[in-house]
Structures are given as C-alpha cells and as structure tokens.
Design a binder for these strands. Structure first.
Lengths: 180, 180
DNA sequence: CACTCGTGCTTCGAAGTCGAAGCATGTTGC
DNA sequence: GCAACATGCTTCGACTTCGAAGCACGAGTG
C-alpha cells in the first residue's frame, strides 16, 4: 500500500515517510467508509443527510441559538451551502431562523421541539452504528489514545487559518492587476 | 463537547459513551478540516480535486491498469461519479480507458506519462501539507498507534458489506412486492 | 445453440455544493 | 454626521455527485 513506489522517489529533501503515508491513507479511507455507512443509516432512520445531522447536533449541544457563521465554521461548510441546508431544515420545521437582536444582520438559528425530538430519535441508532463500525475493533486504550490524538490535531488545525486566509479583501492582494 | 446533554438521555439500554462520542466527533472534524486544506492545495498546485488525486494515487501505486470497479471500490465512490471523473481525467490526458482483453465489458484504466508526472509533481507538496497539519502535533508513538488503529478499523469495515448489501438483485428481497 | 441470469459500465435527471457577486447592516475615522 | 471599510448572510451560475434505469458482454443451463 505504499503509494511511493521505489523508483519514483529520491527527489528533494523532505522525503516521504511510508509509515506516515500509510497511516494517513488508512485514516482517510476508514473515515470515508464510516461516513458512507453512517449516511445510509441517517437517511433511512430520519431522512437526514450527514450535514443536517451535524447541524442538529451542534444546535442541540449549544443550548441556545447559533449564528450561521458559527454553524458553518463548526461544521466545515461553505456559507452558501449552509444557507441551502438551513432552508431545507427550516422548511422541514426542525429549526427556525430569526434576525439577531444585537446584530440585525446576523441570523440566529434555533432548533425546534421537532428538531430536538428527531435528533433524539436518530442519535441512538447513529451511535450504535458508529460503535459497531469504528469502536468495535478498538481496545479501550485505543479509544483513549485516538481521542487524545484527534483532539490535539483538531486544536492544531483550528489554530491555523481556519478556512481561507483571505476571506474577502486583502491589504496586499496576491497579484497586482496587470492593467489598472 | 458532549452532544448528549444530561436531561435528554436515560432512554434505552445501549447508552451513549461520552468518551466515544467525543473521540468520534473530534475524528470527523479533524478529517474534515484536513480534507479541506488538502483540497485547496491540490487545486492550487495541480488543478486536481481530492478524488482525482486519490484516483491517480491508486493508479500510480498499482503499477498496472485497474478496472472501474476496482477504482470505485478503493476510493469509496459511486460508479456513476467515477465515470464522470474518469471522463475528466481522460480529457485532461492523465489516464486512458480501454476495454479489457479478458472481459470485453470491463474498462481498464491506465495512468499516462503525463498523469504520472503530474502526480509526482503534486505529491511532495501534498505530503508536506499533511505532515504540517496532521503529523505536526503527533509524537512518533502517536503515529504508530494511529496507523495501527486505522488499519484495523479499515479492515474491519472492509469485512462488512462494502457498499450496499443488495447491489442489484437479491434472492430474498427485503420487502415482498404486494401484488406480483 | 437459445435462453436466462449476472456483471461492468454509462447515461440521465435530480439534488447538493461551492465561490463570486450582491445586498444590508455595523463600525471606524474625520 | 457621513463616507469608507468591514461583516453576515443570501442569490446566482457552474460543477459535482448520486441512484435508478439502460445497454452490452459473459456465464450457466436445458
């Protein structure tokens, strides 16, 4: 499974560590598989996509309303995509949207009773599936270690510029327009 | 970060382990962030999507041609989506498609010289990014453990029915048609 | 050899996703 | 106060993604 076949390497300094590469590919593949399975189950049990489930989870966890930006930032999602999904969830009666009191331009998203009920109804099966697929072949030590590693990794990534470093405008645009 | 707020639980037997849930959420969030960053970089350096990069990686790793099914199965992707992406890659001159000798209906996908060159050109930066984001906050022991865990998890998931258990037809359809 | 079933891939229509552009509200400097 | 910039969200068009249906080839059975 070493994607660096021997004869292709030997270029620049920062060589490709096969062990790192292997762990990385395994990680991505496992998560892909897991996500696929989970998606099937969410669709079957609650007619929810994974993103919708994540949004409900965030809203249920934070016991108050959240802004669109907070949601998009938490769920690694584009703002426009979030607008679309929020529209669907609102139409389904699972959330409500209202302009914020402090910032008139902010949109505060609140989970409804129905949304909470659906989330509560779907969560057990979800957890069961995740446990069966992900935690079944893991020891308790593995679990602890994995949580530890991933927490550190997440925090590390959150430190780096979260989405794109140049959200809207830059003081120093990357390329000066050729003919102003 | 416990998505199970205290007052909502206490339902059925298989309770929700907060530690498992936390590790799971952290895992998914970290991978999401990683994937986003990586995608940006692949787009910038080689004008490739992540899926396209994965396909090239599989093809470069397996030194011979692969069938569409092998590719779709390896990269967790729908067959129709793979057809689309293969079309793009072929149009870009990175792969070629040809009917197989043994099975006339199989499509053998081969990576071209250009494809291999592009992959080799993009891989170092990719690895650098992954190392910076993922392996930077990890110790050598972490790395070993993570690879070990994920390999086991992946194998476990590959054992389970890989995509959908009922691909085309079943001997025992899940629901008997009411009026045959 | 005909007939039926199974398999590999593609086409098609619908839904989801994203970035760029646009609109409306806040905030800052004068 | 009022420009000018900054921020929060939505709209818009293009692209991607998926499942169902369809087509073509291979395999098994009489």
């Amino acid at each position: 499974m070493s994607a660096t076949h021997p004869d292709a390497g030997a270029d620049d300094g920062e060589a490709l560590d096969p062990q790192e590469l292997g762990a990385y590919f395994m990680l991505m593949e496992a998560v892909s598989l897991l996500q696929h399975q989970v998606e099937q189950q969410l669709r079957a049990e609650g007619d929810l996509s994974y993103v919708q489930f994540q949004l409900l989870a965030r809203l249920a966890d934070a016991q108050g309303p959240l802004t669109m930006t907070q949601l998009a930032d938490g769920v690694v999602y584009s703002r426009s995509g979030l607008t679309y999904q929020a529209g669907l969830l609102e139409k389904a009666g699972l959330i409500t949207r209202a302009p914020g009191r402090d910032d008139e331009r902010a949109t505060l998203v609140t989970i409804t009773e129905d949304g909470l009920a659906l989330f509560g109804r779907v969560l057990p099966g979800h957890v069961r599936g995740v446990r069966r697929l992900l935690f079944d072949p893991m020891s308790g030590d593995d679990l602890h270690h994995l949580g530890d590693i991933m927490t550190r990794v997440r925090d590390h990534m959150r430190t780096q510029p979260p989405r794109s470093a140049a959200p809207r405008k830059r003081r120093t645009p990357p390329e000066a327009p050729a003919a102003p």
